[in-house]
């Protein structure tokens, strides 16, 4: 043992850059990617704040008049000040009948107001920053809460799907033989049924809404794409020389699978995870729209779009705009982020 060797052994790592570090540096050079990352991070911050209850906690309170227009547009002429609401309603109702006065019209109007949450003593805003929905709930707060729901569902489902897909894919790709046959059979059964049909079928039988259900449904059916890719990667790497070399020096199967191959496959999984978040957010929106997704008391972009459908005919466009804008910005940013990730982790000629 030379003294020189001993001295250097103590020192070692001098500014060397692993592949992850190199990828990060490459990523940072992509301006579009960086901006997307910032936007996505901002959304995550909003989700966290909303989840903690710091913002948009009172989204269900009806603080505006029905269909309050956005602040920029000015108050709607038809929604007059609440002070004069009661007698006006009475007068309106009385006139609706063809000349015959309705003796209990006034009381009915009061009941109706009570159901709609308007008590004569409470004042309601004539306009809201982003408008109000049918019950006068603040659209902006709803959009924020909806972001929280949709993003959480997308993220959680994607993580579940990625975990299952990677685990199954690694086993199938590495071991081959009957293990591979079994997983392939499983995969072909799941993929024989189109994705949306499977989700709807499961939603039908479960007959139970809720965020957790949606996450489970999406995660348990969405692992197939990741499985196929991870399996192909493992099959490719298993015969690469560095894995063979590990075999020859005596590394065990588990060691080869997780210490050697997995770090070389994880960049594929990361990109797939990102893609699946987008896919699941879109799926959740469709499910919630149809009424099979999150519960009635939870707001999601899908439920907002559902309400917006009818509002549009009445000319009230702001809930549609809010939900669409919130979703479009996030999904665009996430998609661009995924592209940038892919380019950074696996650079090829563009």
């Amino acid at each position: 043992m030379s003294a020189q060797a001993a001295a250097f052994a103590a020192g070692a790592h001098a500014g060397s850059r692993g592949l992850w570090m190199l990828a990060w540096l490459r990523f940072c050079r992509d301006r579009v990617g960086l901006v997307s990352l910032i936007v996505v991070a901002a959304y995550f911050a909003v989700v966290a704040a909303s989840g903690m209850g710091w913002i948009a906690d009172e989204w269900s309170k009806e603080v505006g008049v029905s269909y309050a227009p956005p602040g920029a547009m000015g108050p709607d002429a038809s929604s007059a000040a609440p002070a004069g609401a009661a007698p006006q309603a009475r007068a309106e109702v009385a006139q609706d009948d063809s000349g015959i006065a309705d003796p209990i019209a006034g009381e009915i109007a009061e009941i109706r107001k009570g159901l709609a949450g308007i008590s004569p003593s409470e004042t309601r805003a004539a306009t809201l920053p982003f408008g109000g929905d049918k019950w006068g709930r603040d659209v902006l707060q709803k959009a924020v809460k909806g972001t929280q729901t949709s993003v959480l569902v997308g993220l959680a489902a994607a993580l579940l799907a990625a975990f299952l897909g990677t685990l199954f894919g690694a086993q199938a790709g590495y071991h081959g033989g009957w293990v591979d046959d079994f997983f392939n059979w499983f995969y072909s059964v799941f993929t024989s049924i189109p994705y949306l049909l499977l989700i709807l079928a499961i939603a039908a039988v479960l007959n139970q809404k809720g965020t957790g259900t949606v996450i489970l449904i999406l995660g348990l059916t969405g692992w197939t794409g990741i499985f196929r890719l991870v399996r192909a990667e493992y099959m490719k790497h298993k015969v690469r020389e560095y894995v063979r070399a590990a075999d020859v020096i005596g590394a065990s199967d588990a060691r080869r699978m997780f210490a050697h191959i997995l770090p070389n496959v994880s960049h594929v999984v990361l990109v797939q995870l990102s893609l699946h978040v987008v896919l699941f957010i879109k799926s959740e929106v469709v499910l919630s729209f149809l009424g099979f997704g999150v519960g009635v008391d939870t707001v999601s972009w899908g439920s907002m779009l559902n309400e917006a459908q009818n509002e549009l005919i009445l000319g009230k466009w702001w809930q549609l705009a809010a939900a669409t804008a919130a979703m479009a910005v996030l999904v665009t940013a996430f998609s661009l982020l995924t592209d940038a990730l892919r380019d950074a982790l696996d650079p090829r000629i563009k």
């Binding site: 692993g18 592949l19 690469r240 020389e241 560095y242 063979r244 070399a245 590990a246 050697h260 770090p263 070389n264």
Partner: peptide
């Protein structure tokens, strides 16, 4: 010792 020097060492 294998042939391909670019594949016989684990890049990570």
């Amino acid at each position: 010792v294998f042939q391909n020097p670019y594949a016989s060492l684990n890049p990570r």
